[in-house]
Design a protein around this nucleic acid. Structure first.
Lengths: 110, 110
DNA sequence: CCATTTTGCCGACAAAGTCGTCTAATATCT
DNA sequence: AGATATTAGACGACTTTGTCGGCAAAATGG
């Protein structure tokens, strides 16, 4: 009974960012990946709200980690993409891929 | 002075659909492309609202065509992606591409 | 303790997505 | 011509996503 819902753009990027960082990754690390790779500058609130919504849809799960011994090293919430999340990502990616097919030249040059 | 705005998912797909149909294409033809390639079933209202917004952002332009000699062949509005639209598409595509890089295996198999 | 830092959450609001329905323009049937 | 069917387009309402700023909690360093 897989949903047929499609991902919003930021949700799409977020899921991908978690994926490429591996499991049990923290919000700020995900933000870093988004900054480096996608050129985004998401505010903290943006991250958490999106995480919440994605978790509610069952596309990711989270657990609280342990505090770390640094200044302000509060325990972080660690996120992981679920199988349903992978499915959603796959659907969204395939649609985009199908539409981009043959238009790749647009991505090249400056 | 390029905008830094990012495209929503449907806007992204829509722009791509126009592009691969060539210029001066009608809403219903775009819908057809979306149906075939991306597996979407957009309602008519969905199409026009999105066209309007995209046009307002300067990402596409439109002109009224002529009536066609078919039953109910009312004049259609014909859409074309603008240079700014291409830019936006490029930005959005590059971000997604950067994030998908190395995760392509997800798209394969059923 | 108090200041500082890092993380997480909440509230508010803007932007995008989606649908159903009403109206206009056209062609066809009788 | 008038009625009817058909196609396109606009509107209004509402849901979902995107985005921020600021507050509270947890932790460390002086």
């Amino acid at each position: 009974m897989g949903h047929a819902k499609s991902l919003g753009e930021f949700e799409h990027l977020l899921l991908l960012a978690i994926l490429r960082q591996g499991n049990d990754i923290s919000a700020m690390d995900v933000a870093g990946e988004l900054r480096r790779r996608a050129g985004r500058e998401p505010a903290r609130g943006t991250m958490y709200v999106t995480f919440d919504r994605l978790e509610q849809k069952g596309y990711l799960s989270s657990i609280m980690g342990d505090p770390t011994p640094e200044r302000g090293g509060k325990a972080k919430r660690l996120y992981t993409v679920t199988p349903a999340g992978l499915e959603a990502l796959k659907r969204a990616g395939q649609a985009l891929q199908a539409m981009w097919q043959g238009q790749e030249s647009l991505l090249e040059d400056a």
